[in-house]
Simulated scan of single mutants.
Amino acid sequence: MARCVLVAGAWLGSWAWDAVVPELRAAGHAVRALTLSGLAEKRGMPARLSTHVRDILGEVARPGVRDVVLVGHSYGGVPAAHAAGMIGDRLVRLVLVDAPVPADGASCVDRWPNGAAVEAAIRAHGGFWPPPDRACYAGQDLTDAQITWIMDRSTPHPGDTLTEPALLPRPLPRIPTTYVRCLLNGAGLDSEVAGLLTGGRWRLAELDTGHWPMFTRSRELAEILVREAAGRAAPAGDCGP
């Protein structure tokens, strides 16, 4: 049995994993979906990137917690990658779900092509990155009802989490990692991820869906996580049955 810790992306809380958690528990794993500081029911709490790293470490550092599968979706992959480097031999695997790969000494906005626009939006909205409009979700395999549901529950994202530089405690090539690529989000595999996949500790799984597979392909995503918790490699391109 593994301890699966699930961290959602920007604007989202633990609720984003509601359809995935039962699948993992049915497979016999302990599961904890986290809401990071400043989001959802924790809205109003001050937060930086380092705060979110501490949120994750506070969960996995509990006495007796071992065999951790740490899952970070989108922005959530950034603090998850930091935390993974500090967990040591209690980490079974880091799983990055369509997430940016952090770089030591660089912030999220430093690395994003639209980083300047994100910074401008943060300044214009009192230090928060506002949730996107409906057009952001187009072409991502979401129904109209799902888009409305996500937009209704999303909260502004603390801007300091996106502008604080990363300080990685362990080189990413040394962390056992599975990268889940969502095929409908972008033209191809990021060159940095492709390079990491050649190092022996990273492997690739793919889902034929958009950027939010916990909503659109929850069962298939859970199947990937169950395989990773069992320490078995997922064949490249395998999306489950």
Rank of each mutant, 00 (worst) to 15 (best):
V5H: 14
M45W: 04
V97C: 14
T216F: 12
G231W: 03
A222I: 10
R170P: 05
L6R: 15
A16H: 11
N114G: 06
G77E: 03
G115K: 14
V69R: 05
T198F: 02
E164G: 03
L204K: 04
L12Q: 08
H29M: 03
R54N: 09
G105Y: 09
C4V: 15
G199T: 15
G88V: 06
I175M: 09
D141N: 09
G159T: 04
P169C: 07
W112K: 09
L49E: 00
D98W: 08
G127E: 02
L221V: 12
A47L: 08
L96K: 07
R203V: 09
S218P: 10
S14K: 15
Q146F: 01
E206N: 13
D144S: 03
T209L: 13
A61G: 05
L172Q: 09
L167G: 10
R203A: 11
T35Y: 06
A145Q: 05
G159P: 13
V78Y: 13
E192A: 13
I150A: 04
A80C: 13
G58K: 02
I175E: 11
P235G: 13
W202D: 06
L34E: 10
H29L: 00
E23T: 14
P165L: 14
L12H: 10
A145R: 09
Y137W: 07
D110E: 06
V31A: 15
E59Y: 05
N114V: 05
H211Y: 02
Q146Y: 00
A116G: 10
S37V: 08
A229N: 06
V65Q: 06
A61S: 05
R219M: 06
A205R: 13
A27D: 14
Q146S: 06
G188L: 07
P102V: 14
E206T: 05
A26W: 04
A138C: 01
S74D: 06
V31Y: 13
D133V: 01
L34V: 02
R170Y: 08
T143I: 03
W129D: 00
R43D: 00
V60R: 12
A205L: 09
R219C: 07
H29Y: 04
G126S: 10
